[in-house]
Amino acid sequence: MLDWFDANLVTMVDGVAYGLLLFTLAVGLSLIFGMMDVLNLAHGTLYLIGAYAAYALSDGSWTGLLIALLVGVLAGVAGGGVLAALTQPLAQRGHLDQALLTLGIAFIASDIFSKIFGSEVLPISVPSQVAGSITVFGQVYPVYRLLFIAIAGGLAVMVYLLFERSSLGALVRATVADRDMVRASGVDTRIVMFGVFAFGAALAALGGVLGAPILAPGPSVDETVLVLSLVVVVVGGLGSVTGALLGALLIGQVQTLGVALMPVYAPFLIFGAMLLVLAWRPQGLMSLVARA
């Protein structure tokens, strides 16, 4: 048993890094879907915005990374605002129309990206202090991924506190639960919804900037992260920060530990996990927490 842990501990650590990366993406998707009832299939594009910002601005110094973060987040907020404004008129027309619109935007954006940045997967420089690898539990592991776990972990705690423990979060959750009641008590719910859209989009772009050295920008990366985020949302449950976190961490482990243990079944693991969760808890993993 101890041997088993020894052999797989690093893989599990990597699963946490991967899970937290998925969390930064999925939480926005989940809140936007849960709150605004908008199925945003351009969510992967927001990741790419951040990742390309990292490519263009991060030059291997801390200042470069900081500038990339700033620009990435601002671009994410702007992108979220535009998406919110564009999908607003379709609010009454159901998910299919929203999906078509946002998917179309994603296609156009990915064409524009490939015009500007070419069709190769691009290298991302990280600050030289964290560029190498160190030995963790007897195995070599990239320093940047450890830093990423620390930052993204902090981010997850922050988002959790903001949405589940603050009065602002209470307002947001109330808007999810009963929009009309919140509006009746004198709150302009449109501002709340725009805010959530921009916030979720900014998180995805932030994930893009920080995650670029792990999952580098290139053609069809937006689709990859979109599909993974959708799986996380389904597994975790809609419109919940805790759910997104649980889902992301589970899928992270499935994608690393699961693959290491059963490489032959690697293509089926992620959807197998989704199937099991759906059969066991159709509302997603958050239903476990909500009941407790």
Partner: peptide
């Protein structure tokens, strides 16, 4: 002899861990 899912695999860490072992 191991085959990694394509194009979904972006993280090779689990496979690399196997090579190490």
């Amino acid at each position: 002899e191991v085959y990694t899912p394509f194009p979904t695999t972006t993280n090779y860490q689990p496979f690399l861990a196997k090579i190490r072992q």
